[in-house]
Design a protein around this nucleic acid. Structure first.
Lengths: 399, 399
DNA sequence: CAATTTAATTTGCTTTCCGAATTTAAATGC
DNA sequence: GCATTTAAATTCGGAAAGCAAATTAAATTG
């Protein structure tokens, strides 16, 4: 029996397949997974009994074919609840999802700027999750898993925060702390990885197993999906795209080193140059807009600042492509203000800088999303764990 | 039964473990693999019957312990033969290995410079393999697998050569051609990957599952091992470390682009600057020596050339670390003449350029090896496939 | 030489999952 | 309206993998 060796067993494989496809008949499940029809019947019967999946009664569109009609299966939304939490500098954003991935509620609470003690932050998160659950008239105890995204260097496997701008302590076993505080299994990850997760589950990376997500906000982040899994490096602190070097002895980065990509393309990098070129301005975002406007209007200094940022970004991106050879790159961002980095010229320049082979260069897509995407990614991350648990446990005791 | 689903089955897991450990008693196999002792007994009995492994009669050193003595198992060298082939610009290098990985013979034949037709090159390789087999009084048909390493962009999975400096045609289904020509399954890969393979199997990467190998010869290459497997990118043409960009609008590379790492550290890059600084020289390697000597002696121009190459190399290396966060980097090279790139200052500079976290920076080791290491990597690559086949087939008909 | 210790094997059983045969639920033909 | 066809789903018997517990084997110790 394949029981002792706890590798991916067929229950999980089928559950994942159903989840990914949304709705799918048994015969297609057998086809896609290579599991025999007989076994698919047995296992899906189990999953149905356990309340993890449901049959969809009629497939209206598919009339007219002879033979016994296929019966689509889907994930039973009601089986579980998961929450996704994103902690940013100024607030905590949350979403509540059912087992199907449908959003049930969202919630935001302000968070005092600066660093917090781990205990305090765990408390804020716990309270926010409780408030989130209350929105659909339930409570924290009914949630099967919570995903939490945090900026900083995080060891997702161990659930530890090595360092984060939101915490005033280093090397905190934060996942365990949250799990204990809420009484719900909590999974921690770096926020860039969560965007990758969101793209994989709901976004443009759906169905793709190898792609890279680049995010720009205050800094430049990257999430890498290899073989359908988040790649984290050995110590869980790889993918520091923003601190790859694009210039020897280059511009000063806030990490203290020189020549980091971030030191050319991040907001603060443009601001300091804008101040030099256009004179200081009290409004930060206003100043960026002024700079872009001046560049547009033909101001040579402003244009050179913006164009250099774009070319540096293209160079950094090309390096990623040369190393990973991904099939898809998703440029994801919350704000429109980084449009100049996502411009066609920049992408074209990147294409010119990669190693030329016969195969087509990687697809590059731009995906703008709102604030809650981070939290949705966190929820998707938790959902994977909950699916795995649900598949492993024979029966689920939904209250 | 786990038969229909052909995932890694226990036979292969145990065979691999024995192979990796060299010699290991059953009880440790059970311990390490998580397979029960009962099953280990059953499976190893099978493997013994099939002649794939052997018991080692006495373990002399381990006397003095109570209880029934452990009986070490090892791979049966005689079970299979594999060959490794490396095609370089001027010759074909080959090694013959037994199933244990012990070298049985080596062979080298000159190869006319320049490009060859696929048919011709397949012929040369086939003849060379036959000559290799003849060295131990056997023939090609007795070899169970051949690994072949080639420079160029190669799709290892498909066995296709997109482009290679050794071939005068593009997109050749070269593995199939060799398999047919020799009547032995042949596995193709990029030569940088083979060095990684050699390091993993025999070298400093032994027992490591995540590391990176950087090679310098004419160009700069990289092999990436993630999770014990060679990472190849989506289209099998990633890891182009030599063409990552280290300078915007930088030095001209032979690939036609500007600012590639290679354009600062490769032999030809140093040569063209050396010619400018010291005047031309007819002897290529002599000129490099002259340059290094002058730098050593305090010539400021020469020193600046060499030091810039070193700093550029450090920067490229730091980028790799920032992206992958490997536990180990192996700087592998055939020749001593790149010592200046492997100098302590260069490594120190790299360390300063990576993102600082609490965890220790990756270990960096330098490994110099001879010409046959490539071929040994190719053989190790073929060996993996032969092991897999042997584990899958119930019985092996050794002639 | 009996007791002890540890490794390896044997035995009986459980679990998983397949192939083949069968049943089911429709559409179609007459 | 009823037999026929078609395709999906299910049932049934069996085979393989692999475990736990009991047993056997080979050594040391007192």
């Amino acid at each position: 029996m394949a029981f002792g060796h706890q590798r991916e067993d067929s229950r999980l494989i089928l559950l994942r397949e159903i989840s990914q496809e949304g709705r799918i008949p048994r015969i297609d499940l057998a086809e896609r997974t290579g599991i025999s029809r007989a076994t698919v019947t047995t296992i899906t019967a189990d999953l149905l009994r356990d309340g993890l999946i449901e049959e969809i009664p009629r497939e209206d569109g598919a009339a007219g074919t002879r033979g016994r009609p296929r019966v689509d299966l889907k994930i039973a939304g009601a089986a579980h609840l998961v929450a996704g939490v994103k902690v940013s500098g100024s607030r905590i954003s949350l979403v509540l999802m059912d087992f199907e991935g449908s959003q049930m509620a969202e919630h935001e609470v302000p968070l005092g700027a600066g660093r917090h003690s781990p205990e305090a932050l765990a408390g804020y998160i716990g309270d926010a999750v409780a408030a989130l659950a209350a929105k659909i008239g339930t409570e924290t105890a009914q949630i099967s898993g919570v995903g939490v995204g945090l900026a900083g260097t995080i060891d997702a496997g161990a659930g530890a925060v090595h360092w984060s701008p939101s915490l005033n302590a280093r090397n905190v076993d934060f996942a365990a702390m949250l799990t204990e505080r809420m009484g719900v299994p909590t999974y921690l990850d770096n926020d860039a990885n969560l965007v990758a997760m969101a793209e994989k589950t709901f976004g443009l990376g759906r169905g793709r197993s190898d792609f890279i997500v680049v995010t720009i906000e205050a800094g430049v982040g990257m999430g890498i999906i290899l073989g359908g899994e988040i790649y984290r490096g050995t110590r869980g602190c790889g993918a520091e795209f923003g601190h790859t070097k694009v210039q020897l002895e280059g511009a000063l980065c806030r990490c203290g080193q020189r020549g980091c990509l971030e030191a050319y393309v991040a907001e603060y990098a443009l601001l300091r140059e804008a101040d030099t070129a256009l004179g200081p301005d009290t409004s930060l975002s206003g100043q960026i807009a002024r700079l872009l406007g001046a560049a547009e209007a033909g101001d040579p200094t402003a244009a050179s600042i913006v164009s250099r940022a774009g070319r540096m970004f293209a160079m950094g991106l090309a390096n990623i492509v040369n190393i990973f050879d991904p099939e898809l790159i998703i440029l994801a961002g919350e704000q429109m203000q980084f449009d100049y980095l996502y411009a066609d010229e920049v992408i074209a320049e990147m294409r010119k800088s990669i190693v030329q082979v016969d195969a087509a260069p990687p697809e590059v897509v731009i995906h703008k999303w709102g604030n809650l995407m981070w939290a949705r990614g966190a929820a998707a991350y938790a959902l994977e764990f909950v699916q795995e648990r649900a598949a492993r446990e024979g029966r689920v005791d939904a209250a």
